[in-house]
Amino acid sequence: MDKQVDKQLIRVIKAVNNMPQSQFSEIVNISRSLLEKIEAGNMPITENTALKIRSAFDLDAEKTDHVKKTIDLLTLDKKNVSNSEN
């Protein structure tokens, strides 16, 4: 399984592009119900689905890694803000 392509990455792609599930699933050529299951954590992302996502959004391993690191940094900053408020 492609560990770089995960539901968090999907959500970021959708958010950055202001894209609803229906549009994302159409672009990637997967069913909306499959996308819903993936985002809910009820279905793993197969290699085939990861490949479709990478292809549809022109994401090579380097770009995906960069996006994942950015997500991690933003998540870390959000956690630090929450901890400092307590």
Rank of each mutant, 00 (worst) to 15 (best):
Lys37Ser: 10
Leu74Pro: 02
Met19Ser: 07
Gln8Ser: 12
Asn29Thr: 00
Ile53Arg: 02
Lys37Ile: 02
Val12Thr: 10
Glu26Phe: 08
Lys3Gly: 01
Ser84Arg: 10
Asp60Thr: 07
Ser33Asn: 13
Leu34Met: 06
Ala40Tyr: 01
Leu34Gly: 00
Pro20Ile: 14
Ile53Gly: 03
Val67Phe: 09
Ile53Met: 03
Ser33Arg: 11
Asn29His: 00
Asp77Gln: 10
Gln8Thr: 15
Asn48Ala: 05
Asn86His: 15
Val5Asp: 04
Asp58Trp: 00
Glu39Asn: 04
Thr75Gln: 14
Lys78Ser: 15
Ser25Gly: 10
Ala40Leu: 05
Ile71Pro: 08
Ser55Thr: 12
Arg54Ile: 04
Leu34Ser: 04
Asn48Phe: 02
Glu85Tyr: 15
Gln8Met: 10
Asp72Lys: 11
Glu26Cys: 01
Ser25Phe: 08
Thr46Lys: 05
Lys78Leu: 10
Asn86Arg: 15
His66Cys: 11
Asp65Ala: 15
Met1Val: 09
Lys37Pro: 01
Pro44Asp: 11
Ile45Ser: 01
His66Phe: 14
Arg32Gly: 07
Ile13Gln: 02
Glu47Pro: 01
Lys63Pro: 01
Glu26Gly: 06
Lys69Thr: 08
Asn83Asp: 13
Lys63Met: 11
Phe57Tyr: 07
Leu76Gln: 06
Asp58Lys: 02
Leu9Trp: 07
Lys7Asp: 05
Lys14Val: 06
His66Gln: 14
Thr70Gly: 05
His66Met: 13
